[in-house]
Amino acid sequence: SDYEVNVNGIHHRFHNISEELIKFIEEALRRGEDLREIIKKVRELLG
């Protein structure tokens, strides 16, 4: 049904976003950045 496609589409989009965010955060932590600064950047990215 349309509803299922829609829900799956939304889930898929969020899954991709969270994968990208996790990579972004892991790389920043590897560079020794402060978690609070990383979260601030993530918030800015998400608008």
Results as ranks from 00 to 15, higher is better:
Gly47Tyr: 10
Glu27Ala: 14
Asp34Arg: 09
Glu20Ile: 08
Ser18Val: 03
Ala28Thr: 06
Gly32Cys: 03
Gly47Ile: 13
Phe24Asp: 04
Ser1Pro: 04
Phe14Asp: 00
Ile17Gln: 01
Gly32His: 12
Ser18Lys: 06
Arg36Asn: 12
Phe14Ile: 01
Tyr3Arg: 01
Leu46Tyr: 07
Arg31Ser: 08
Ile10Gly: 05
Arg43Lys: 08
Arg30Val: 11
Leu21Asn: 06
Glu26Ser: 11
Val5Met: 04
Glu44Ile: 12
Tyr3Glu: 00
Gly32Leu: 05
Lys41Gly: 06
Phe14Pro: 01
Glu33Ser: 11
Asn6Asp: 08
Arg31Gln: 15
Gly47Lys: 09
His15Val: 09
Gly9Pro: 00
Glu19Cys: 04
Arg30Trp: 15
Ile25Glu: 00
Ile22His: 03
Ile39Arg: 03
Gly9Gln: 02
His15Thr: 12
Glu37Phe: 15
Val5Leu: 05
Glu20Val: 08
Glu33Arg: 13
Asn8Ala: 06
Arg30Glu: 11
His15Trp: 05
Glu44Met: 13
Glu44Pro: 06
Ile25Gly: 00
Glu19His: 13
Glu33Cys: 07
Val42Gly: 01
Tyr3Cys: 02
Leu29Asp: 02
Lys41Asp: 06
Ser1Trp: 13
Asp34Glu: 08
Glu37Lys: 07
Glu37Arg: 11
Lys40Cys: 02
His12Asn: 02
Asn8Lys: 06
Leu46Cys: 05
Val42Pro: 00
Glu27Pro: 01
Ile22Lys: 07
Phe24Ala: 06
Leu46His: 09
Ile10Asp: 10
His15Tyr: 10
Gly32Pro: 04
Leu35Gln: 02
Glu27Val: 12
Leu46Gly: 09
Val42Ala: 04
Ser18Ile: 03
Phe14Ala: 00
Phe14Glu: 00
Ser18Asn: 10
Glu33Asn: 11
Val7Asn: 04
Asn16Arg: 05
Ile25His: 00
Phe14Asn: 00
His12Trp: 08
Glu33Gln: 11
Gly47Glu: 11
Lys40Ser: 09
Gly9Asn: 04
Leu35Cys: 03
Asn16Gln: 05
Gly9Lys: 01
Leu29Ser: 03
Val42Asn: 02
Ile38Tyr: 03
Ile10Tyr: 05
Ile17Lys: 00
Asn6Lys: 07
Ile39Pro: 00
Arg36Gln: 14
Ile38Arg: 01
Arg13Ser: 13
Glu26Ile: 15
Leu29Cys: 01
Glu44Gly: 08
His11Thr: 13
Glu20Arg: 10
Tyr3Lys: 01
Ile22Gly: 03
Phe24Tyr: 14
Asp2Cys: 07
Val7Pro: 01
Glu20Cys: 04
Leu29Trp: 07
Asn16Lys: 04
His12Gln: 04
Asn8Pro: 02
Arg36Thr: 10
Ile17Trp: 01
Glu4Ile: 07
Asp2Gln: 03
Ile22Glu: 02
Glu44Tyr: 15
Glu20Ala: 12
Gly47His: 11
Ile22Cys: 01
Phe14Lys: 00
Asn16Phe: 06
His12Ala: 07
Arg13Met: 15
Glu4Ala: 03
Ser1Asp: 05
Val5His: 01
Ser1Glu: 09
Leu29Gln: 04
Phe24Met: 09
Asp34His: 09
His11Pro: 04
Glu37Cys: 07
His12Glu: 05
Leu35His: 03
Gly32Lys: 08
Val42Arg: 02
Glu33Pro: 04
Ile10Trp: 06
Glu27Ile: 13
Ile17Arg: 00
Ser1Ala: 09
Ile22Arg: 08
Arg43Asp: 15
Arg36Phe: 12
Glu27Arg: 14
His11Val: 14
Val7Asp: 03
Tyr3Pro: 01
Val7Trp: 08
Ile39Gly: 02
Asn6Leu: 07
His11Asn: 11
Leu45Phe: 10
Ile17His: 01
Leu29Lys: 04
Asn16Ala: 05
Ile25Thr: 01
Leu35Glu: 03
His11Glu: 08
Val7Phe: 06
Ser1Thr: 14
Gly47Trp: 12
Phe24Cys: 04
Glu20Gln: 09
Lys40Leu: 15
Ala28His: 08
